[in-house]
Structure formats: C-alpha cells, structure tokens
Design a protein around this nucleic acid. Structure first.
Lengths: 188, 188
DNA sequence: TCATATACGGAGGAAGCCTCCGTTTTGCAA
DNA sequence: TTGCAAAACGGAGGCTTCCTCCGTATATGA
C-alpha cells in the first residue's frame, strides 16, 4: 500500500493505438472548429467507433483536456523562460502575447480557463494559473507593479476578448488589451 | 413612397398574444440558463407549438435579440445619464460596473457583443458600441485618458471574464478588472 | 495453443434543431 | 350575421448529436 504497483499493467496494443488516433483526430478537429466539434465526427475521422471514443474519454472535457495538455505545458515553459530572460513586467507582457498566439492557433486555451472545472482541467487550469501567478508575483516583488488580487483574471480578460467574439478580427484588440492592462498595473 | 403607409397592418390578436408569451418564457429561460436553453422548452413553457416559435423568431439569435432589447436600451440610457452627471472617467467606470450588474442578472449581454453579427444584434450591438464609444471619447476629449483604438474591447474584456467562466464567482474579478482598466487608461 | 480479460464498435433511446404542411382561427366585407 | 380567404397554429418527421449498453472480436500470457 505504501507503494502502489507502478505501471500497473501495460495497456493492450490496440487500445493504445486507438487512443493515439483519437487524440490526433481531436487535435485537428478542435483547432479547426473549437471545442464544440461533434465527437462522432472525431471518432469517424479516427476510424474507430463512437463507443471506443467514449471508453477512452468519458466526457468531452476529458478529451479536450488531454489534447491541450501539451500546448498548455508549452505555455508553462514559456513562462519560466521569460521570467529568466526578461525584466519582470516585460516577461508578463510577452507571456500574455504568447497566450494570444496559442488562442488563435489552437482555438481553445480558453477551455482550460473555464472554472466550472469541478474536477477537470485541474491539470491544465493549474498550469495556467501557476504561470500567471508566478509572473505577476515576480513583478510585484520587483516593485514594478501594484498588487493584483487575482492574477488569473488578467488571463480571463484577454481570453475573453477572443471568447466573446471568436469570429471577428479579435487579435489586435487582444494585443491592445495586454498593453492597457500592463499600463494599469505599473506603479505610477 | 415618401411616407410609407405606417402601421401597415395590425397583427392578428392570437399572433400578438403568442409572441408575448414566447418572449416572456424566453426571458425567464435565458436568465436561468443563459442563451443556450432549448427552444422547444421555451415553446412548451409558453404553451405554443415549436412551429409558432420559429415563425415568430426564425433563429435563436432573433429571439435573444428581442428579449434583450429592453435591457440593452437601459444600458444606453445609463450611459447618457452618467455622462451628464459624472466626471468623464468616473462615468466610464460606473457604466462598466452597471454592465456587470446586467451581466449577472440577465446572463447575456454578452450575446449582444458577439461580432458574428453578420446582420443580427445590429441593434443591440450598436447601442452598446455607441454607449462605450461615447463614454470613452468624452473622457478622451476631456484629456483624462489616453487614446483608445477600439473602446468596444474594454467591454469585451469585462464581459469576457464572465463569459469564460460563468459558473464561478466572477463578479469580484470583473470589478477589479474595471479598476485596472481605468488605471491603465488614465494619463500618467 | 487456448482461455479469458480487455477492448471494440455500433445499435438505439433521448434530446435538440428546424421545416413543412394540413388544420384552425380571425377579422374584414358583403 | 355570415362567409371566406388570409393568417396563424402546431406537431410530425427528418436530421444531427449525445451517450450507454452489450454482444462480438482479439491480444496476451500461461
């Protein structure tokens, strides 16, 4: 009980194969249509039955989460890199811009921001939350910006510009918003 | 041709009655569940057939638009009132806070912000757009804030905080965001 | 090789969307 | 008042998606 039998069992080869196929198909579909794509369509594209999809990913959210874990991970790494290489406020600014890029190419980092995450997104959401938290606290400690009650809201505001109207040409507005937020954060 | 025959025709009594019933049911449903409620449910609540609903409101968007026209109108009036009674920047700040109240009670001013408005939301969207445009330009003219490329984005950011995660306790964050934005806008 | 735990996959019920069209109602005109 | 056409009603039905359940197929290790 102290040590669970790690790697309890290798999954069957077909299971692993189908899992990867599904993730692959899902990645494309989400990037194309956002998180609302038809799951049956994804299963069809992957060449497996809908039942198989649901066994591997019991809910839409689980699938989304899985697909974006990687991208979200990259965002987390970007935060570390920027903190190491840039002045604190600049690091924060650039990181938000990177997030905008991810939003536009992957469509749905936003999903990881959803707070209905009773249980899901625990992972991705935490990564994002930690990243922005780090960046903001770092800049606070440097004395460059005023205190921010909940740094996560910065992200929500930027993502929100996309989220409210994804069809429009939202990116310029989002970038302008980053500058505006940074301006508001700087100590006078 | 100069003057169209105004009030071309009084609608039939039953048509008018059902229309009102539908709007009433829709208002409740939207406030409860946001804009994604089932239209069949609304028709059922209103005690009319689904066909009747669709005749009166050919698309979901038309129905949403109609339901929120009144609320949006009030937001427009609030803008005028605040411009008249408050210093420019304060008017802007307070108006954004009023929008937050509306978001929380009516759920979906956000729908009026959607830019996919190829044709719809023309009305409500314009009202919101005009209101924030006025408020911002007014403050700009007074020399209190820096130039804002697209004032509408302010609204999108605030609404976005709600929109990204409506289930959470988003209001404090949204209010904080308003202050942050105002701080960013003020001239140093 | 063979037994069985594991995985597959699709049929099917529930729900929603929207259209179409036969039936009913209304209100104007005679 | 009565008749009747225009207007409105409303739900069946075709389509899509969601998700579950369970009979069938197969990988794996003894």
């Amino acid at each position: 009980m102290a040590e669970k039998p790690v790697a309890k069992k290798r999954p069957r080869a077909d299971a692993e194969r189908n899992r990867l196929r599904l993730l692959d198909a899902a990645k494309d579909a989400f990037a194309r249509d956002g998180a609302a794509t038809s799951l049956e369509e994804i299963a069809r594209t992957a060449g497996v039955g809908i039942g198989t999809l649901y066994r591997h990913f019991p809910t839409r959210d689980v699938l989304v989460e899985e697909v974006y874990r990687q991208a979200i991970g990259q965002l987390g790494e970007a935060a570390d890199r920027l903190i190491a290489s840039e002045p604190p406020v600049e690091a924060l600014r650039q990181w938000l811009l990177v997030c905008i890029d991810y939003l536009s190419t992957k469509k749905l980092v936003a999903a990881a921001l959803g707070g209905n995450a009773d249980h899901l997104y625990a992972n991705s959401g935490d990564i994002m939350r930690n990243a922005i938290e780090h960046l903001v606290r770092h800049a606070e400690r440097a004395g460059d910006i005023r205190a921010v009650p909940d740094p996560f809201d910065l992200l929500r505001a930027v993502a929100g510009i996309f989220y409210v109207a994804p069809e429009t040409d939202w990116e310029p507005g989002a970038r302008a918003m980053v500058d505006l937020l940074i301006a508001g954060l700087r100590k006078d």
